[in-house]
């Protein structure tokens, strides 16, 4: 763990020291905010998608500041793929669990009291599943395009 920290600090790739430092501070806040948006999706504006985008943005900023390698160590592309699929799967499983009450996507969990965190039945669960999916897939898309882009820019240099 300590080695990674050190490596990150000394890594030559990515942006300037200022950016890196700010990102290191901001990263936690962004993740926290994303998680908040996801978890309170059924009470306030937001939800799985919005929160997921914020979470993904956290990783994307990480990539921008420190370069691809470091970011992939935090969340590898394989890991992103698994997260992506399990998020989607979880969503469908929640829908299928509705069959315990006889209907697809039935809100089978107790609705709880209004304006409390544990309310809304399956909706917070759905939000979490969606957030997993969105985070992972946005990050994966970004990484994929970055890899493509690097490939392309390599080509352009070759031509020149």
């Amino acid at each position: 763990m300590h080695d990674i920290e050190k490596e990150i600090r000394e890594s030559k790739s990515g942006m300037t020291m200022i950016v890196k430092t700010i990102v290191r501070f901001a990263m936690g806040i962004i993740i926290l905010f994303g998680a908040y948006i996801v978890l309170y999706g059924h009470l306030t504006p937001g939800g799985g998608f919005a929160g997921g985008v914020i979470l993904a943005c956290g990783y994307i900023i990480l990539t921008l500041a420190f370069g691809k390698d470091i970011a992939l160590r935090k969340l590898s592309d394989q890991g992103a793929s698994i997260m992506d699929n399990s998020g989607a799967l979880a969503f469908i499983v929640i829908g299928l669990l509705g069959y315990t009450g006889g209907y697809f996507f039935l809100n089978f969990i107790d609705h709880g009291k209004r304006f409390e965190l544990f309310s809304g039945g399956i909706i917070p669960l759905c939000n979490i599943a969606i957030a997993l999916k969105v985070t992972a897939s946005l990050f994966a898309i970004f990484i994929a395009l970055a890899i493509f882009g690097k490939f392309i820019s390599g080509l352009v240099e070759e031509e020149e």
Binding site: N85, S86, I92, G95
Partner: peptide, 13 residues
């Protein structure tokens, strides 16, 4: 719809 969508993701896993 649920079966093909679910299997699509299970498959990748």
């Amino acid at each position: 719809t649920a079966i093909p969508l679910a299997i699509a993701f299970v498959n990748l896993l």
